[in-house]
Simulated scan of single mutants.
Amino acid sequence: MASEDDSVAPSPSGDSEPFNVEGYARYRGRTMISRLLFIAERCSDPESQMDALRLAYMKIKRTEDTQLHRRVVKMTNGRLGPEYGLDQAWIDDVDRRMAHGKDELQKDVSDAQYRLYEEGIRRALADFGDFYYSHGHLADAFEKYVQSCDYCTTEDNTIQMYLRVILVSIELGQFSYVSHYADKAMKASCSLSPLTVGKLLCASALAYLHGKEYKLAACKFVEMRRALGIRYTEVVTPLDIGTYGGLCALASFDRTELVKKVIDNGVFQNYLEFVPQVRELIIDFHERRNSYSIKSTLEKRRKRGRSEWRTLVGDFSSANVLPRLDFHGEKEEDRRQECSEQ
């Protein structure tokens, strides 16, 4: 969303803030590794780059994903020393176990299909999808998860399989599938748990965000359930929800909507507590504080902020937020006067 020049900053968090790479990667599973590699690719601070690559290397060795292992080794380019080099013995061992596991799982699927046992077919296909997912074969995992949906015999099984399809679709960047299966899951049951509803709202919001439909994304983010909290960190953290939801609301809501859906929304305020800068921008906009100071804050954050600030704020600043800061008929001389008084 930002230009190539904007995607790299002198430091990932600003000159005055110490940057803890491990503390920043507050995710689970493959998403944590993806974030670490993102930091290593985008951050121009060599120490932070090496910290991210070192941690990613160790995390990947706890998985079965040899493709990611090769990628991180290529990115380190020998800069971390021989102990962070290509581990061919580990790769060969993983590949051997994968070949054996694939044969066993295919046998399980065939046996269940021969017996026409729907629940057995569903479990076997879901296990096959999990197997491919753990090895980083995301397209194959997606295919098995989708196939398993056809053999679900309970609402709970259906919802769980839809959530797996959504997870791998997000990683593949296939957001049309994310939106489709989130909608299907919402309609599949009348008794979804608050946690499941939160996950589905989050998935829909991310799909809208990817499509730059900021108001629709904001509406989903601000509906977020308290139950979600830190229980969907294989996809997002509370900081992400506060950042994305707050900026989408600032980009698309008028002041009445900001009050009703954001400022007076106790649950979403909990997420904004993780990003006080976003909360303050929303309050400044609502209270008609001078547009110059808000623009300056956005620009400062775009240049010096963390990666999600640099990409999202870079896009919003140029296309959405800044044009709206010429406040509703407010005269230019009034704005200059307000600035001079402050």
Score class of each variant (00 low, 15 high):
Y244F: 11
E330Y: 03
Q174T: 06
A126R: 14
N77H: 12
Y133M: 03
P194C: 03
R54C: 02
E330L: 03
K184F: 15
S340M: 06
F316W: 11
R97Q: 13
Y214A: 09
G120P: 12
Q49S: 07
G173K: 06
V73D: 04
Y214E: 10
M1Y: 13
H137T: 03
P194M: 03
R30T: 15
K107P: 12
Y57T: 09
Y208E: 03
Y271I: 01
Q337Y: 15
D284H: 09
T158A: 06
T154K: 00
V73P: 00
K107V: 10
P194R: 03
L312V: 08
G23F: 00
S179A: 08
G81V: 05
R28M: 15
T76W: 01
L86K: 04
A56R: 00
F221E: 13
H210L: 11
S44C: 01
N270A: 12
Y145A: 09
F268Q: 04
P276A: 10
A112L: 14
L36Y: 03
V259N: 07
S48Y: 04
L80P: 01
I230C: 12
P276C: 02
G198L: 05
R304H: 14
R71W: 09
R30L: 10
L116S: 07
R226K: 05
A25R: 08
K59S: 00
S148Y: 08
L37A: 07
C339E: 10
D254V: 09
E104N: 00
Y271C: 07
L281P: 01
C248E: 01
